[in-house]
Design a protein around this nucleic acid. Structure first.
Lengths: 200, 200
DNA sequence: GGGCCCATGTAAGTCGTTACATGATTTT
DNA sequence: AAAATCATGTAACGACTTACATGGGCCC
C-alpha cells in the first residue's frame, strides 16, 4: 500500500540497524548501496522529513552541542520496512549503459573506432572491479565478521558482475576482429556496413 | 562540447540508419535499446524539436495525407553523432536493482524470506532471458543477416547478462542455505542475525 | 589561525514516466 | 461498423544531480 519512494527504501533499511543522522545515512550509502541503489543528499534530507511527517521515523533527542538530528524507526516504520522487504510486487530494475549503446551503433563506425571503444569499456569495468576489491571488500569483510552476511553477499554480486563484464568485452574484442576479417577478406561484394541502408 | 542529452544520443544514432518519424524511433527503441538505454515518447517528441532548433536534424517533406513528420540528420547532426560515438569522456553507467537491495538487507529477514526473494530474483532473470530469446533474438538475427553485426552483439550482451544473473542467484541460494546451517547447528551462542546490533 | 571534516539544508535545472487528448487510417 | 494501430503531442508529477550556502568543532 504505502509505496515507499526509492530513497525511502534504502533509508528505512539502514535505520533498522540503528539510529542514524542524515549524514550517517549518506556515509553508509556511499560505501555500500550506491552501486545498485544510489541516493544523494539532495534526496536524503527532504525524504527524512517526509518520513517523519508520515510517522515512519522519528528524531531522537541527542546529547552534545553540535546540531544533529538522529532518526530512528517507529513501530510503523518497522512494519512498512518489513512489508516492502517481503513484497513480491515491486522489483525495480534499471540498467543504463553507454558502452552498450555505443556498441549497438558499432555499424556506424570504423572497426578501429569500435575496438577502441570496446577496450575502453573493458578497462572501465576492470578498473571498477579493482576499486571494489580495494575499497569495498575490506568493509564488507569486516561487517561479515561481525555477523552481517548479506552486505558481503551483495558485494560479491557487484564484484562478480564487474568481472563478468570485463571478460565479456575481452571476448567481444576477439569476435569483432574475427568479424572484420570475415568481411575484409572474402571476394568483396555485399558489404552493407559502409553505408547503412535506408530501411523502413 | 555540445553534450547531447541521453535521449538525443539514441535518436541521432537511429536516424543515421535513415529518416524516421518520432513514432518510428519509439518503435525501434522498444525492441532494441530500451533494455540498456530507454526513452519514452514524453521525451522523444520534445527532443526532436530541440534537435531541430539546434540544427542537428531536419524534418523532410513527405508524401501522403497522414500527418507525419519525418526527420533526418543534417551535416551537423552527423558530425555531432560521430563525435559522441568516439568520445572518450562520457560513459554513463547506471544500475539500480531492487533484488540486490533486498538481498543487502537480508540480515533483517528470516532465512525463509531471504530464500523466497532469491528464488523470485532468479525466476525474474530467467524469465527475462526467455523473453529475450523469444522476442528480441529473431529481430536481431534478421538484422544481422542484412549486415548489421552490432545490434546482434549487444543483444548477446543482454542475454548473457541475464543468464549470468539467473545463475548467480542459483548459486546464492545454495550459499545462503549453507550459511543458515552453519549458523543454526553450532552450539548456539553468538547469533547476531536475530537482532541487528546498534553499531555507530 | 587555517584547514578539514561534521552536519544540515536549499535551489535550479534536468530527466523521465504516465496518463491524457486527439484524430486519421487500416484491418477485421 | 468497430477495433486496432498510426501518429503527434501536452501536462503533471516525481526523482535525481549539482552547486551553493552556512556554520560548528577538531586538530595541527
Amino acid at each position: 500500500m504505502s509505496s515507499l519512494s526509492p530513497t525511502a527504501r534504502v533509508i528505512l533499511g539502514i535505520l533498522k540497524f540503528g539510529p542514524r543522522s542524515g549524514y550517517d545515512i549518506r556515509k553508509v550509502i556511499e560505501i555500500s548501496t550506491r552501486f545498485f541503489w544510489g541516493a544523494s543528499y539532495g534526496q536524503i534530507y527532504p525524504e527524512l522529513r517526509r518520513l517523519e511527517r508520515a510517522g515512519l521515523v522519528e528524531a531522537e533527542a541527542h546529547a552534545g552541542s553540535r546540531r544533529r538530528r538522529v532518526y530512528g524507526l517507529t513501530r510503523d516504520g518497522e512494519r512498512v520496512l518489513h512489508e516492502w522487504l517481503t513484497d513480491r510486487e515491486s522489483f525495480t530494475f534499471e540498467y543504463r549503459d553507454e558502452w552498450v549503446l555505443r556498441l549497438f551503433f558499432g555499424d556506424l563506425l570504423s572497426t578501429d573506432d569500435v575496438l577502441t571503444n570496446i577496450r575502453a569499456a573493458r578497462q572501465w569495468f576492470a578498473g571498477a572491479a579493482e576499486f571494489f576489491r580495494a575499497e569495498i571488500e575490506p568493509r564488507a569483510r569486516a561487517g561479515r565478521e561481525e555477523g552481517e552476511f548479506f552486505p558481503w553477499l551483495s558485494y560479491e554480486y557487484g564484484l562478480e558482475f564487474l568481472e563478468w563484464a570485463a571478460a565479456w568485452y575481452e571476448r567481444a574484442e576477439r569476435r569483432v576482429r574475427r568479424e572484420a576479417r570475415r568481411r575484409g577478406s572474402p571476394p568483396a561484394g555485399s558489404r552493407p556496413a559502409d553505408r547503412p541502408r535506408d530501411r523502413r
